[in-house]
């Protein structure tokens, strides 16, 4: 009976938006199905790492707080990402580290103090039936999540765990290294790899793009984040629609750039400045409206080196303690 559902948490209060996210849905873009996955890959990956899970293990993405969970059994968890004033039995819950939760105890998220999204990983991982190869929850597409139909968490939900207990206390650090814990309130510079249409923007717009201070707009969600600032002008106003990769920064005719994130539409037809690196896209997803950001061009080699360095922190091998 290895497949019998094992309940880890019960949802006492759901909050505005709590979603199950694995690494994302891949190999489906050609049928119009988007990527999904964690908006902040950096914090999501650390949550799994601290909980002793492999890369890709499903985690809860908690947006703007409000979630309250009750443990149905003794659990080991790790919460990373935004400071949503999380509490454990009414005491502040330490972030970016492994925490033991006893059966019957509660974990709750309050109002955001810094950042937007927190990630809660449980040792062994949450479990749901994959749809098109992934449990990544995309509400708009009605795909993934615990119910398979893209439903966000609701009060009364029972959150199932993987029956294969993956936790090995010696396999993981108990706490993330200090440089890996971002200050989400600090002024932010985003690394952008210039793309094919970069030279079609006017000289002044290119100057503005990389020298102006941009403000994160109210229109910011898992599909994309709009930046407001000087209007950018491009000699190309519209293009034949084509595939859009993660972090692409498109500029519609109003001149206000939009960084396209995990739940973006799969094709689109606006010229692009280029692509944010994965780590910069992660950081942008933690910015509240009004946050000031700057764009900085990054070279290919530097971006790849940074990515490899980041990925080197994590474990991809099949866990040996499952045998």
């Amino acid at each position: 009976m290895a497949n019998r559902a094992m309940v880890g948490f019960r949802v006492m209060r759901a909050g505005p938006l709590a979603l199950l996210q694995d690494a994302g849905r891949f190999g489906t873009r050609h049928i119009g199905v988007t990527q999904g996955g964690p908006a902040d890959m950096h914090a999501w990956a650390w949550a799994n790492q601290l909980a002793g899970n492999q890369w890709g293990t499903p985690v809860l993405e908690v947006t703007l707080g409000g979630l309250e969970l009750e443990a149905e059994r003794d659990l080991t968890i790790a919460v990373t990402g935004a400071d949503l004033t999380a509490r454990h039995q009414n005491q502040p819950l330490p972030l970016w580290r492994r925490v033991r939760i006893a059966a019957g105890e509660r974990v709750s998220f309050g109002a955001p103090a810094a950042g937007v999204r927190a990630y809660l990983a449980v040792s062994g991982g949450f479990k749901a039936e994959p749809v098109l190869g992934s449990v990544a929850c995309v509400v708009r597409e009605q795909l993934g999540g615990f119910d398979g139909h893209g439903r966000k968490l609701e009060e009364g939900d029972q959150l199932t765990l993987s029956s294969a207990e993956g936790f090995s206390p010696h396999a993981a650090e108990a706490e993330a290294p200090v440089p890996e814990k971002p200050d989400y309130s600090a002024p932010l510079t985003l690394d952008l790899l210039p793309g094919a249409q970069i030279a079609d923007f006017t000289g002044k717009s290119l100057f503005d793009a990389f020298n102006a201070s941009w403000q994160v707009d109210q229109r910011a969600d898992r599909m994309g984040v709009r930046l407001s600032g000087p209007a950018l002008r491009c000699n190309i106003t519209s293009m034949v629609s084509e595939g859009i990769s993660m972090g692409a920064v498109q500029v519609p005719p109003d001149g206000q750039p939009i960084a396209l994130l995990n739940d973006r539409q799969t094709i689109g037809g606006y010229p692009r400045l280029g692509n944010l690196t994965a780590l910069s896209a992660s950081r942008l997803s933690q910015c509240q409206p009004g946050h000031q950001v700057r764009l900085r061009p990054i070279g290919f080699e530097a971006a790849l080196r940074e990515h490899r360095q980041f990925m080197g922190n994590f474990s991809f091998l099949p866990s040996s303690n499952n045998i």
Partner: peptide
């Protein structure tokens, strides 16, 4: 990882 064909292009990830 992914292939996105469209009218005139193929995005290869």
């Amino acid at each position: 990882v992914d292939l996105v064909p469209s009218y005139t292009t193929l995005l290869v990830i």
